[in-house]
Design a protein around this nucleic acid. Structure first.
Lengths: 263, 263
DNA sequence: GAGTGGTCTAGACCACTGT
DNA sequence: CAGTGGTCTAGACCACTCC
């Protein structure tokens, strides 16, 4: 025997899926829905909570519950890394034309808002272990938000860590004013003689932290995809650790593995 | 001004993180916690709901709320694909020794329970598009659950699709009794003359469907990681589409990209 | 200011776990 | 069967959106 809120949710879910409520339209008020289904408002809210978690509806305080427009997620492929590396050696004006984010989203530079903040921090135990440096080593921490101009909440957020001593030779790299840097991190590293030879992506799914839920404007009971990118230079040294976080519904990662032929 | 349940959750969260409640121990009863924090039971439950979503606690009806033991997630790397391919040509007894799942988890064959179910279905529009075959084409659908013997709920679940006409030449491939097949899917395909040349992984994060939440025994407001593996043979034909689903907290995917040298 | 969702309370009853 | 979490009700008041 399933619960009342489960049955109410199932009914509403199927009605939405069947197109009985069009995308971007408002559902009846919670008090009305509750009356129609013969449950209290609290129980009705519990049912709507499930649909919210599934990404079927958006709740807007004071305005109503809206059927969510399903946007196709941005696709991020492995090839971007080689593409980024190849571009490092292009002239500056070509690099400036468009970055990797524009490539993934298919949007123009003008459609995107880019925010960066630099701070210097001592390495936590966790990050230090990845870099294989002592805890407390001076790091440059760069926090990013990427936002579509047309939207309030960012598409994604992230942080990148560099070892201060690796990059201090070029003071331009310490200044957030130079973001977005044409050519991206691989070009930045190239200005201090670092060539990236290998990149490891570690992918995890979890619910957002309270901070992330706030910044990304997503419910606490939704999913985020976390990508930790670890860049290793041609001498085997870890030169960048970057964590990128997207709402699960907005991103698809794609990885291509070529296998060696038998013959 | 944040809400009461937020503040209560934040306090409990920090106490758990600080080790004030050891892993696997029971928290005080909800009625007691509510009294201590000066809120009603309903509000207390709402705070606990947040910690549940974050994976900090487990709720067990009738027994209590338990601080969750953080298990290190299983790591699944790209190298598994080449490894699997290399094994196809080994003698049967060596292949039988251990499969890819055992390799990822570091567990023995005896610690794992493997369940497979085969059915034949007509291709849905969505799957047909990936295979690039007409909708309704006959497919073999193989549903899997992998479970640690010591646990009730499966570690992960998944479904694999093969085009019936590709594999019908070998009747052994149509029978779930032959699972787990030594050497895995790549070996199965090799018995009908198919050599896999390329594998594309598509990774997505979302909340579980009601079904998945039930089978995996996870809350509806948690995250699952979904991997769609698309295998392409050496002639460029899609030969397998497989969806694997894990609770987000139990899996980490790792992908290694080697970049071409500049010189 | 009317209408909407968000928070919180108080309390009843049910379902499950352990002893 | 005592104790625990799960469901549901009824109603008050607050915060926000939009006209």
């Amino acid at each position: 025997m399933s619960s009342k809120y489960d049955r109410v949710a199932a009914d509403l879910r199927s009605k939405i899926r069947a197109g009985r409520f069009a995308p971007d339209t408002r559902l009846p008020a919670e008090t009305d829905l509750a009356r129609d289904y013969g449950v209290t408002v609290n129980t009705m809210r519990r049912a709507l909570e499930l649909l919210l978690q599934e990404g079927l509806i958006d709740k807007r305080q004071g305005a109503g519950n809206y059927v969510r427009q399903q946007r196709p997620p941005m696709v991020r492929t492995t090839e971007r890394y080689q593409w980024e590396k190849d571009r490092v050696r292009l002239p500056a004006d070509e690099r400036r034309a468009a970055g990797a984010t524009e490539r993934d989203t298919g949007l123009n530079r003008d459609d995107l808002d880019f925010y960066a903040e630099y701070t210097q921090i001592p390495a936590t135990a966790e990050i230090a272990a990845v870099f294989n440096v002592p805890e407390g080593t001076r790091l440059l921490r760069r926090v990013y938000h990427t936002r579509k101009r047309s939207e309030r909440a960012p598409m994604g957020t992230g942080a990148s860590y560099l070892v201060y001593d690796h990059i201090a030779r070029n003071p331009d790299l310490l200044n957030a004013e130079n973001e977005p840097w044409p050519g991206g991190t691989q070009h930045q590293l190239s200005t201090v003689g670092i060539e990236v030879g290998e990149i490891v992506d570690e992918v995890v799914a979890r619910t957002p932290t309270p901070d992330e839920a706030l910044v990304l404007d997503i419910p606490s009971g939704s999913a985020v995809l976390v990508l930790r990118k670890i860049s290793i230079d041609t001498t085997g040294r870890v030169v960048e650790v970057a964590d990128a976080i997207w709402p699960g519904s907005r991103i698809k990662l794609s990885y291509n593995t070529k296998l060696k032929a038998w013959n």
